[in-house]
Design a protein around this nucleic acid. Structure first.
Lengths: 249, 249
DNA sequence: CTCCATACAATTGTATACAATATTTCTCGG
DNA sequence: CCGAGAAATATTGTATACAATTGTATGGAG
């Protein structure tokens, strides 16, 4: 039991959520049922479901246009439909799911025009983020960006490159120190994750992307905001051009 | 010191068995049967709750920092907790609610730095929207903007002015023809709605805002994207300056 | 053979019951 | 009177049952 100090109201003690909620009746099946272990890692089931589905989308286990049925998700994750519905609604609000033909939800399918709009926004926001980062980034943040650059250069696997790439973009965005910027870019990022594959599988892309990244980080490190923005926008335009080539049809 | 009226034993839900769903005979369905039967206007209860809460926030019936309890909302809107929870989760994902001390949700309270970040993003996005609108707006869209300008000029009530103002900004954003832009700006707009009052209550603001609006729309009509962006950014900066003066403390 | 109506099945929407936990209140020994 | 623990309470989290709606197959009339 926690010690409650005097008259102060308990401060946000929200982290430990230790849900051993199930109170399983003997009828419930969960094979790896170790006592006291929390399969949901401390989060609510709804949060868990939400994360799992996003992960599945990123991994390509859910693809564009796939139907998503509540009961299926519930069963495959071992929870009831209630938290699934909550997660689904959130995903819907994120723009990752939508109502397909009157009944039921499906993973959003991006058409060409949406991809164009997505990249237009991304160019705008990443450009602005780089500009702000050039003004506000701390030395530690710049150092981290450089670390990511190095990691990127060190790997050859397109998947991993994509991951370092994402981390770098997040780092730049964070360095802008504007939480609404972070939120908006995350949203775009999620939507783009619906597109299969990565542009780094295109021969030579990793190399040019690295050069572009270095230009951006260099400008940020130098505090040159105009250059940072220009470089970031150019980088996104390159990515867009390649992505469009990769689109089917 | 809060006096809890309900200090009697557990609320003990008595069978609120009144299923609001009419339970019709399967064979008797008529088309116009819905009129009058459905207090939710065709939407799901969750959607209804979502809209109602947003409206309440815009109207100032929910203020920053207010606690939001599921049961209260459910009762006051005449639905069960299930759809309320779904709506609440969506609002949470929109950034309008957040988890307050450990338990329960509350309306997000914006501090000064958040307001600054909000306006920084807004300047960026509204500027970009105006630029895009200058490139892509159809004549009908421009005509609608001009109609809104006229309506704005015709009214004296700050609340109504704020509404026309809002409509105009939405119109410009729509004319950018980018759904992610719309989504992001809506989000900012919702967050800003948490601030009480309107800058139009400041003497003379309606007049200057009108001039600024006209400059923006004029630039859009003329297809001058640079000017449109500049004018829009200047307009937001003005609004920001006034808003900051209105903030408490 | 096509078209419409109807029955049926699949799936979502909502309410409620219940479990778990955070917070408040209460009690009691210093 | 104060603080620590314990009971009470308030409130959220989850599961489940059932209602309603929509998609789909089937069968009959033209």
């Amino acid at each position: 039991m926690e010690i409650r100090q005097g008259s102060r109201r308990a401060p946000a003690r929200q982290g430990r959520r230790k849900t051993k909620r199930p109170a399983r009746d003997p009828g419930q099946r969960r094979i790896d049922d170790k006592v006291g272990t929390d399969p949901f890692n401390g989060a609510s089931r709804a949060d868990y479901v939400y994360q799992q589905i996003r992960q599945a989308m990123r991994d390509g286990r859910f693809r564009q246009g796939d139907r998503v049925r509540e009961e299926d998700v519930a069963q495959s994750l071992g929870v009831s439909r209630t938290p699934v519905r909550e997660a689904l609604r959130q995903l819907q609000s994120d723009g990752l799911l939508d109502v397909t033909s009157g009944r039921g939800l499906g993973v959003v399918a991006l058409d060409r025009s949406q991809v164009l709009e997505l990249y237009a926004m991304r160019e705008l926001l990443e450009g602005a983020a780089a500009r702000l980062a050039a003004q506000h980034a701390t030395p530690a943040e710049v150092a981290y960006m450089e670390h990511l650059l190095a990691s990127f250069r060190r790997t050859r696997d397109p998947e991993q490159q994509a991951q370092f790439n994402r981390a770098l973009h997040v780092a730049i965005c964070d360095a802008a120190h504007n939480r609404y910027m972070v939120q908006s870019l995350n949203q775009l990022s999620d939507a783009l994750a619906l597109l299969q594959g990565t542009t780094f599988s295109i021969s030579g892309r990793a190399r040019t992307a690295d050069l572009e990244h270095r230009a951006i980080v260099h400008a940020i490190a130098a505090g040159n905001s105009n250059l940072a923005e220009t470089a970031a926008r150019a980088h996104i335009r390159q990515a867009q051009a390649l992505r469009l080539q990769m689109l089917p049809l």
